[in-house]
């Protein structure tokens, strides 16, 4: 498949926006601005996917990254010393090592991208890239998707366990026999 010139311009522009927004994450002085600069960067990547006609991947990237950034805003309140990043604060830690690491990784990736002898495309563009993706996920790549899925789920549960100081023993008593849970917030389901 050859990209149309419009798509190439879009990919270049969105790529620049994505990098610029990524840089902004470390320049701005508020947690909220850093979070949403990162979101802009991800949305630009979603735009690139859209320009490459990978619609499903594009919209699912936009969807997941937005929810992820919003949940990060919730976690900011839970974990941060500075609730919700309400006050200006620096967004960088260990600046020198991170800068060196960043430059090295960037150099390695750029060198790799431009020096590797990339294989030519075999096969043709599928009529429906979403269907092709679904078939790949549900057949040849199912194992890897399952492993990733379980890994992510375990991470979510561990994060929640670390964040909450109450467990089932606090709710239902030491022998888990209390009929009505002792919740700090009343109401909801029994």
């Amino acid at each position: 498949m050859m990209l149309t010139s419009l798509a190439i311009v879009a990919v270049i522009l969105l790529g620049l926006i994505s990098v610029a927004a990524g840089v902004a994450v470390f320049v701005v002085d508020s947690m909220a601005k850093a979070t949403f600069a990162l979101l802009v960067s991800f949305l630009a990547v979603a735009g690139i996917l859209l320009a490459l006609e990978l619609t499903y991947l594009a919209v699912v990237t936009a969807l997941m990254m937005t929810i992820e950034m919003a949940i990060m805003a919730v976690f900011m309140i839970m974990f941060m010393m500075n609730p919700a990043g309400l006050m200006p604060m620096t967004m960088v830690h260990n600046a020198r090592t991170s800068a060196v690491a960043g430059v090295v990784v960037f150099a390695v990736l750029v060198l790799g991208i431009w020096t590797i002898d990339w294989p030519a495309r075999v096969g043709s563009l599928p009529a429906d890239s979403t269907r092709q993706l679904g078939e790949a996920i549900m057949s040849s790549h199912m194992l890897v998707m399952l492993v990733i899925g379980i890994g992510l789920f375990a991470t979510i549960i561990s994060g929640t366990v670390l964040a909450t100081h109450r467990g089932r023993y606090d709710r239902f008593g030491p022998d888990l026999r209390t009929a009505k849970p002792n919740d700090p917030v009343s109401g909801g389901l029994r």
């Binding site: 909220a32 949403f36 979101l39 619609t55 499903y56 919209v59 699912v60 936009a62 969807l63 937005t66 929810i67 950034m69 919003a70 805003a73 919700a84 429906d128 890239s129 979403t130 269907r131």
Partner: peptide
């Protein structure tokens, strides 16, 4: 007509999370 209309609709609604949080922030 994308091959993922439903996900498009869902993504626009998910972006509302960010928008409404920003309106409040």
């Amino acid at each position: 007509s994308t091959s993922a209309d439903l996900v498009w609709f869902n993504a626009m609604e998910a972006l509302l999370w960010a928008a409404v949080w920003l309106v409040g922030w």
